[in-house]
């Protein structure tokens, strides 16, 4: 079967701290029949500055990414819930009245979150007989949950992994405390919020925490790390890759 080219925008955070996650994303996309092409020259969606209220600066960075993505065709896969929300929902606002307004609207429509794309071809996962023995909990990224409403897709993907028990978390939809610059502006509150989440995770008997947002993963993983918590914190793509998808 011919594999279909698909544009992948790994995001800045993945470039900075998640090179292996980038590989996992490519592996899984390849396994479901895509040949991912990393968007050349795209840097960042502008979210950090946009959320801090600096629209001009956000627009300057986003414009570069927008134009590079505008040179490509077809769906654009983004392995980050909040970046997907930024591009799909807020780019139109950011570029309102701007010379790139039409381009922003067109590119925004093409942006897809990782699990959405893989979910549409989820049946192909079975061929790899994915297996990972763990008790997992899924943490919703706030923006993915509330701005995009992508709730079932990542959970459905985890359901394809044999040996993986997925338990609901009592704290369900509560924020992990990352919030971008918030995590640096108010580190004590941010850490307290992560602890709240991690306490609930421990109570649920979960040893693998899964999410779809590098921000949440970084926040919860780094806090668990500092506490000496044996918890593993992984992106959906990494879970699938570890379970043997694409092997």
């Amino acid at each position: 079967m011919m594999s279909e080219p698909i544009v992948c925008f790994p995001t800045c955070l993945v470039d900075l701290v998640g090179r292996r996650l980038a590989d996992d994303v490519n592996t899984v996309l390849g396994a479901v029949g895509f040949s991912p092409i990393v968007a050349s020259g795209a840097t960042c969606c502008g979210q950090p500055a946009f959320n801090a209220g600096h629209h001009a600066q956000a627009r300057r960075v986003a414009r570069r990414t927008l134009r590079r993505l505008g040179d490509t065709e077809g769906p654009i896969v983004v392995p980050s819930g909040s970046c997907t929300a930024m591009m799909r929902r807020h780019w139109v606002e950011l570029f309102h009245g701007d010379r790139d307004e039409i381009l922003a609207a067109a590119v925004a429509k093409r942006v897809r979150e990782f699990s959405e794309v893989v979910d549409e071809r989820r049946r192909r996962l079975s061929a790899f007989e994915p297996r990972l023995n763990a008790v997992a909990g899924y943490h919703d990224s706030c923006h993915m949950l509330r701005e995009l409403g992508i709730i079932d897709q990542p959970r459905r993907l985890l359901g394809y992994v044999d040996g993986l028990e997925v338990r609901p978390l009592a704290s369900g939809e509560r924020c992990c405390g990352f919030g971008g610059a918030f995590s640096l502006r108010y580190p004590e509150v941010s850490v307290a919020m992560a602890d709240d989440k991690l306490a609930d995770v421990r109570e649920s008997g979960v040893d693998l925490l899964v999410s779809s947002d590098p921000g949440c993963l970084m926040q919860l993983g780094s806090r668990a790390d500092r506490r000496g918590d044996p918890l593993r914190v992984l992106h959906v793509a990494s879970v699938l890759a570890e379970a043997g998808v694409g092997r």
């Binding site: 970084m218 780094s222 992106h235």
Partner: peptide
Amino acid sequence: PVLARWAAGRGLPGRGGRP
């Protein structure tokens, strides 16, 4: 300032190439 504020209660991200 950035690193210190992050590292006040958190480990450094990116160990093992994953966030």
